[in-house]
């Protein structure tokens, strides 16, 4: 599904990722953990195609295709979804309109029929129920004035609606209280499927109490320094990231 080889990325000539390797198979859930500044968010942005991130070396293959050749929206059309750490507010843009335009843009690009308003409405209501998002929020401007938890749930709603093949969740747990975290995690779990790969980018282990990853990777100074099963997350929780650095040096 996704194969990252020797990835080097700079922002304004400052190297952030330094030879990152990662293989993600279809249907797998991977957690990428690491201290602040290790390059976690950079990885999410490079995969989703944000401007300003310069790939100086290496390659990324997504379903056998050179991902770096694709425009941001083309990646979305091909099933890459990024749930953002700080979802952006779009004042004046109705949430429902945004969701519909987005879904139909992707359906169009895939040669599928666009959903009419009635069908869309049914679908969005069903999905909103699933992520326990208040229907009132659908009628408001996208994320404008939403609480932190509402914004994150709105991201998961979009994910549920767009049904991506590769979902990237960037620090989805940050700023959430335990109830909100549980709701978001339930949403993600409900979307787990053999056809869908998930990458959880997180600083803390606590999200992984609710979403069980198949693989855990530790990112430090722009490369993956350790990979393992979910027990690695617990080990990290106990010993902290400094232990890892020592371990890597040893």
């Amino acid at each position: 599904m996704l194969s990252i080889k020797n990835l080097h990325v700079s922002i304004e000539d400052k190297p952030i990722l330094n030879g990152l390797n990662l293989e993600i198979g279809t249907g797998e859930v991977h957690a990428i953990m690491g201290p602040n500044g290790s390059g976690k968010s950079t990885l999410s942005y490079v995969l989703s195609g944000r401007e300003g991130y310069e790939v100086t070396e290496g390659q990324i293959l997504y379903e056998g295709e050179d991902l770096l050749e694709l425009e941001t929206e083309e990646r979305a059309h091909k099933g890459i979804f990024l749930a953002m750490q700080y979802p952006v507010e779009l004042p004046g843009v109705n949430n429902m309109v945004f969701l519909k335009e987005s879904l139909n843009a992707i359906r169009r690009a895939r040669g599928e029929e666009e959903l009419d308003s009635v069908k869309f409405m049914q679908l969005v209501k069903e999905k909103a129920k699933m992520v326990k998002l208040d229907e009132k929020l659908l009628k408001r401007s996208v994320n404008a004035g939403f609480s932190g938890g509402e914004k994150k749930r709105n991201e998961i709603l979009q994910m549920a609606l767009l049904e991506p093949k590769l979902a990237l969740l960037d620090e989805t747990d940050s700023g959430l209280d335990i109830d909100a975290l549980r709701i978001v995690a339930e949403g993600v779990n409900a979307l787990r499927s053999p056809e869908r790969s998930v990458v959880l980018v997180t600083h803390y282990q606590r999200l992984l109490d609710y979403i069980q990853p198949d693989h855990v990777h530790v990112l430090s100074e722009g490369r993956i320094v350790r990979s393992g099963g979910k027990e690695l997350a617990h080990e990290l929780e106990e010993k902290g990231y400094s232990w890892l650095k020592e371990g890597a040096a040893a």
Binding site: S48, T72, E73, A76, V88, V93, E101, S102, A105
Partner: peptide, 22 residues
Amino acid sequence: FYCRQRGLTEEDAVSMIVNGFC
């Protein structure tokens, strides 16, 4: 970026934001 990540072209995104504004 947010709009494009959700599959919209830059121009669709601008027109959506502008229409919301108006």
